[in-house]
Design a protein around this nucleic acid. Structure first.
Length: 570
RNA sequence: CGGAGCGUAGCGCAGCCUGGUAGCGCACUUGUCUGGGGGGCAAGUGGUCGUGGGUUCAAAUCCCGCCGCUCCGACCA
């Protein structure tokens, strides 16, 4: 490709609204342009990188017997009513009417059409197991897209669905996919990606893992154990609380006028927050009030709570709190008329301070086993920095991550609701088990930049770089420079090397700055000084590696360098 | 959906408070010099000032509505 003809304008200045490195360089480097909030067009360099990522994914999916299909972006309401998700998924599912007034939707994931497709095509146990996948546009009407390609509304995703006749087969295949995912992330140049245990969210199902690129700029909270290298999404992370045994002391009222918060209480009586029991009240969508008791220094994790309550909820109003017998600011779980949940952080603790359900008073020596014996013990606290690892007991560390992929064991959630069956060896109809596996392509692309860039631009791994070789020439109006550069370009093209040739007669500074933004791994420089000695310079992007090679050997050098470098990504 | 901010040329911004011929830098076009990290000189192109209404002799500027964008939060495979 001649750069003079490349439609991909580079910008010198940083876009005002971009914060993330990937967002900045994707715009500055001419990889993409915004079309609407969270919707982008890809320019040629961006499209080339995306296509390479897709091809690597394709290869790895095919290796584990995946069969590529294509399912529609637009689907009728009925298909999603079968699975129940027309009603259960919120406004992020974009619904609309076609010209006849029929309810339609834009696909945000494709369990429904895939199940519908598979149930008519695979009706015998002989067809099993099988996996179908596609690389297709998805649309999610995000409340808040942000960060360039990290969080968007329209995006390309590889989604795969496997079907099995028994649990063991599903488990084994799930592990195969997990392995393939590690291979994929290694091949696209982000071996840093880790598998973490995660919530199943709207997908339903039992087991789920997310693939996260651990980075400070990520939007997911990740809990990691530096000792045993375990990772959890904060939504499912747990810990063990240890307490020294104490004798249960009698409840004792203490006067605490105008002391409504834990913070105030700590100041007033000089006892630390983790010796207190804090109350949080919620109103569920069924309009029930529930009380939650948690240690004073901890936060309720609403994802965990949602799993306990199995419905939507919101903070309760003061009136609702009073109705169940509590006093806002001085509440405790004792003697309430509503359902009380006690976090395990409080359940095994001794002699805590809690509210007295009486204006201006708190109680000393609250003990769950004695004082709220009917309460349900649950795990709803957010894990904190330094909490102990439930696996090995080391101190947990909180960090952040970008979710670049995920895998779910769905079980029969979709096959059952959508009445998918196959005929087994005995002629009986059975419901198959299912799992699904996603990878966000654009997000992966952006993650590569987050993981690999410098102050000048992205540093693309050779496996997904928009081009493999960049040619820069200094002084193209001189015949010997131009002829050498043109010949080199022709030789590389002929050898099948992907080469971007900067054939514009620009100063070195401009060419190098733009080349850095394009981030091509190997740069060949045709310049007067070296050429006078019959040499061409080379430089490897993002490293100190550079040197000179004879003009006649330059093309062969590039080819062997590529061959050697590509081994890293096999 | 809550909080904050911003919409003026492709990008980055000034002008608005105090109404009176729409500006600057980058980019783009032409010429010329330069030539190893976004170079110099000269001459150009490009804007219904987000949008609708109102006030006024006169609105980018003042007032009201709407739309869009960004950041923080809520939400979220």
């Amino acid at each position: 490709m001649r750069q003079s003809k490349l439609i991909s304008r580079k910008h010198k200045e940083k876009p005002a609204d971009a914060i993330l490195a990937s967002h900045i360089y994707l715009l500055r480097g001419g990889y993409m342009r915004p079309v609407a909030n969270g919707i982008y067009s890809l320019l040629p360099p961006g499209k080339r990188v995306q296509q390479k990522i897709e091809n690597i994914i394709r290869e790895e999916m095919n290796k584990i017997d995946g069969q590529e299909v294509m399912m529609p972006v637009v689907m009728p309401r009925e298909m999603w009513e079968e699975s129940g998700r027309w009603d259960s998924v919120g406004p992020e599912l974009l619904r609309f009417k076609d010209r006849t007034g029929h309810d339609m939707l834009l696909g945000m994931t494709h369990e429904e059409p895939c199940t519908a497709l598979a149930r008519t095509e695979a009706t015998s146990y002989r067809d099993y197991p099988f996996m179908l996948y596609q690389i297709q546009t998805k649309y999610r009407d995000e409340a808040r897209s942000r960060g360039g390609l990290i969080r968007v509304r329209e995006f390309t995703m590889k989604d795969a669905y496997s079907f099995h006749t028994n649990e063991k087969d599903l488990d084994e295949y799930y592990e195969k996919v997990a392995e393939a995912y590690h291979t994929i992330y290694r091949r696209i140049g982000i071996p840093e990606v880790v598998a973490i245990q995660s919530d199943t969210g709207m997908m339903g199902g039992k087991v789920a893992h997310e693939y996260q690129l651990v980075t400070d700029v990520g939007e997911d909270k990740v809990v990691m154990c530096p000792e045993c290298k375990s990772y959890w999404n904060a939504e499912v992370a747990t810990t063990e609380y240890q307490y020294k045994k104490e004798d249960l002391l009698p409840l004792e009222e203490i006067a605490t006028p105008n002391t409504k918060t834990i913070e105030d209480l700590v100041k007033l009586i000089g006892v630390s927050a983790h010796k207190m029991a804090k109350m949080v009240f919620y109103t569920t969508e069924k309009n029930e009030t529930v009380a939650v008791v948690i240690r004073g220094d901890l936060e309720v994790n609403e994802t965990k709570l949602a799993k306990v309550l199995k419905c939507l909820f919101n903070f309760a109003t003061d009136e609702a709190v009073r109705e169940v017998g509590a006093v806002p600011g001085f509440a405790s779980g004792i003697g309430l008329t509503c359902k009380v949940y006690v976090d395990k952080s409080v359940a095994k603790a001794y002699n805590l301070i809690c509210g007295a359900n009486k204006e201006g008073f708190h109680l000393k020596n609250f003990n769950v086993s004695r004082d709220t014996p009917k309460a349900e013990i649950v795990d709803i606290a957010t894990v904190q920095e330094g909490d102990v690892c439930p696996k090995c007991g080391a101190k947990l560390h909180l960090t952040r991550g970008i979710e670049v992929g995920n895998i779910f064991k769905l079980g029969t959630k979709y096959t059952e609701s959508m009445k998918m069956t196959y005929t087994d060896e005995n002629g009986e109809d059975k419901v198959p088990l299912m799992a699904c596996y996603g990878i966000g392509i654009g997000r992966s692309l952006a993650s590569v930049i987050e993981a690999h860039h410098d102050d000048y631009g992205p540093i693309w791994p050779l496996s997904i770089a928009p081009w493999q070789v960049q040619i820069n020439a200094m002084g193209l109006d001189k015949d010997e420079i131009k002829n050498t550069a043109e010949q080199l370009y022709a030789d590389l093209e002929k050898a099948g090397v992907e080469v971007l040739y900067d054939d514009r007669n620009l100063s070195a500074g401009v060419q190098f700055a733009e080349a850095d933004l394009t981030g091509i791994p190997l740069r060949l420089i045709v310049a007067p000084k070296a050429l006078a000695q019959g040499m061409i310079e080379y430089k490897v992007r993002g490293t100190d590696e550079k040197g000179m090679i004879p003009v006649a050997e330059a093309a062969a050098f590039a080819q062997s360098w590529i061959k050697k470098e590509m081994k890293k990504y096999k």
